[in-house]
Nucleic acid binder design. Sequence first.
DNA 1: CGCTTGAAATTTGTATACAAATTAAATTAA
DNA 2: TTAATTTAATTTGTATACAAATTTCAAGCG
Lengths: 211, 211
Amino acid sequence: MTKASLYQQLKQDIRQGVWPAGAVLNQQKLSDYYQVSRIPVRDALQQLKAEALLMMAGKASLMVPPLTAAEAEELYQIRLQLEPMALRRAFPQLTFSVLGQAEDLLQQLEQDQHLSAADRGALNWQFHLILYQPSNCPHLLRLLHSLHQQVERYLGFQEISLNYANTSHQEHWLLLELLRAQQLDAAVALLQQHIQQAGELLTSHLRQQPA
Amino acid sequence: MTKASLYQQLKQDIRQGVWPAGAVLNQQKLSDYYQVSRIPVRDALQQLKAEALLMMAGKASLMVPPLTAAEAEELYQIRLQLEPMALRRAFPQLTFSVLGQAEDLLQQLEQDQHLSAADRGALNWQFHLILYQPSNCPHLLRLLHSLHQQVERYLGFQEISLNYANTSHQEHWLLLELLRAQQLDAAVALLQQHIQQAGELLTSHLRQQPA
DNA sequence: CGCTTGAAATTTGTATACAAATTAAATTAA
DNA sequence: TTAATTTAATTTGTATACAAATTTCAAGCG
């Protein structure tokens, strides 16, 4: 377990609920669990804290942040502001090659029926990322990546992602069509609707049955 | 030099150019300079990297990110999307007490003529933060804080902040007036103009004489 | 002259040990 | 019993030492 991979592993384990929301992590426990000394654990924790994938709990201890409807709504609202910007700024640089890559990814997502929720989440983000990359906006992409990682923690609820998969899928294909047809405004409108819809589905679910 | 303060100190020293844009930082150098072992240095570096106040330079070394017009423009565009959101979400919870606090800060900023650029930047952000806090949006506030820290690195150019100070100041007072008068849309419009203007001033300056 | 290749030097990554702080528990007083 | 206070336990913070990786630089080759 090397340094970078410990960070990745810990992040994945937080997503997947090995360390569930509300759990207080301490360095000893983690260094035992992952069979490394506390130093690389500290490094990983420091990074995760800065990304808000961990939060302070008291003066010195770290906690896996609880999943609340209010925060989910907030995260989706932020995405709603930033993703249209990313798409608009990427649009002039969008090539057929890029759109082709995005299409490939969609087909992959369509065919593989037995993907884990985590895998599907990752591919879904990859799809969006491919479209946003040509924007050449490092800060914007970094923020969106971080936001997406936050959101992913909420999508452990398979029911949601499954119910959502079909309609989401159609919207993705439509988005590609609109972009191919140079219909930027329509594409942005669709994207906004797409995000808003996903956000509302998630938050309403959370309000009904809190994590 | 304790851990939290090393992080703060290092951040401040990056802002103030002790470690200038483009400089490659290594742990030994820093632990010598700040008279601590490499462990707390590593912690601070890890955090700063996650906040994009440092970036990878090669495989394992860290660099103070260069200041480019393109990135400055990007940062202001992101603020332009997020700060109106923050103001809108704070508005329903804005009290006279909060507006009073903001006013106090403005007066403080007005009276103290001999503030450093760093101090003025900090107070300026505090003003905005006071108005955004009531939004109760932890993620949004965290992002804005991070963005502001990024932007601050660009404001070492005193010429800019001085030229800008007067007009900026008037806009701040007007913003408070509009909020007091419950003119949310007008306040948001002003805020947008305020940010856009500041962004354009900075980027045009950077394009003329790069950092 | 430029490009690779290799070894030396530097730098980062990790483990262990100990000090300082925080957290928990237990004791005492109201 | 509850709340406050002291004490013990745990946990974090830091320094040092060593291993692994990177970066640098110079020698050799095309």
